[in-house]
Design a protein around this nucleic acid. Sequence first.
RNA 1: UCCGCAGUAGCUCAAUGGUAGAGCAACCGGCUGUUAACCGGUAGGUUGUAGGUUCGAGUCCUACCUGCGGAGCCA
Length: 437
Amino acid sequence: MSERPAPAVTVSELPSHPGVEVTVKGWLYNKRTGGKVRFLILRDGSGYVQCVLSKAEVPEAAWNAAAEVTQESTIEVRGVVRLEPRAAGGVELSVLDFRILDACKDFPITPKEHGTDFLLSQRHLWLRSARQVAILKIRSEVESAIHDFFYKRGYTRVDSPILTPNACEGTSNLFETEYTEEEKAYLSQSGQLYLEPAAAALGKVYCFGPTFRAEKSKTRRHLREFWMVEPEVAFLEIEGLMDLAEEFIKELTVRVLDRRAEDLKRLERDLTKLETVAQKPFPRIPYREAVEILQKKGFPVSFGDDFGGDEETALAEDFDTPVMVTRYPVSIKAFYMQPDPADPEVVLGLDMLAPEGYGEIIGGSQRIHDHDLLLSRIKQHNLPIEAFQWYLDVRKYGTFPHSGFGMGLERFTAWMCGVPHLRECIPYPRMLYRIYP
RNA sequence: UCCGCAGUAGCUCAAUGGUAGAGCAACCGGCUGUUAACCGGUAGGUUGUAGGUUCGAGUCCUACCUGCGGAGCCA
């Protein structure tokens, strides 16, 4: 490169430096070569810029390097920023000098179609592609928005343990690991039970971290390791919980629309579908009504049946916002959910179903706060009372009504992005029979 | 775990039971503005594995392996 100094900038900063000579470092995304003019598309993580080399205006070494450079080679470009309507993004670099920092040979992922098996085995390299970059940026935006949402409202983040001594809810399969020679430990499948005592200490709390489910699920809506955010609030009851969940989803959606519109466009997401979400109230349908709706649609369901994916989609398809289904039968929900005093066959719980077939993004409930009722539920579910003694203590020492929900980060992100499969919404997906890379 | 589908060049896919092919990537050459650029050329193969049927198997049969889609479960 020339000895002339030029400020180093990122691609995202280029539009604010028109006419200025700058240096950009990154990787070659694609190139198009001609006899007198050559185009190099540079990516640096912040964006993409087309670098234009004219044979007459660059050193011969730079001109030749532009012909040789291969996809994903590390490169350095010195050039003048020019506003150019012919270039994607509206800005390009008129190159003064160019050099290859490291020549990349045979990058496996070419700018053509690939199958998912191949791409997943190359996930560490797949991350570099434009679509994956956009999804990861949106995921990161959602994570920040989650923390901001709770911080603004006076919540304290309480990290729940990942190693736990037993099943939190006693139902799903857990990943088992050796804790000591005598004792097993299990990877957490929910922070909720640990958050309830924390709510007694801090009032409004939330946890946000990885969650593990060892079920042998093989669907687009499941991962074995995923991230879940779980608020838990003292003295909050079911109606307030529904308000919180709705406010939460709306705020996250608006945040993504405001700050990541460009990434959504790259994913060809229909923005109007997300804008609607922020503007309209979310319908709240009691389970008993939901059963009637499904029966009218021809589903053979009756009170006491749980809803599968098809039923969820059928319920959600009538609305262009998420819909909350509330007050499920006691028999199909977790042991800790508070029965409805007005209708003891159902619990004060909610599932929020996203539109466009994205399914359940939130599940939550008011928790049982009566010690003896919770104790009888633990017995009914054949759970070991000793293991839940500490959990019962929340009801023993100054009990209080409280509620919380869990939201799956990847499911929400998938819906925002309009991506059909969760595996693209986490950097390194862990799925049944796939843990590499 | 169950049901269904698939496995051919680095990648994406073709090939009636009868000589394994194309596009992209790679390599060589051409092109003054390209937008997954284009044009010409070169090279690239134990058709997932093992067995079977047949004069002859990528193709038909059996088993296994791997992956994909879905169910159950859930976020």
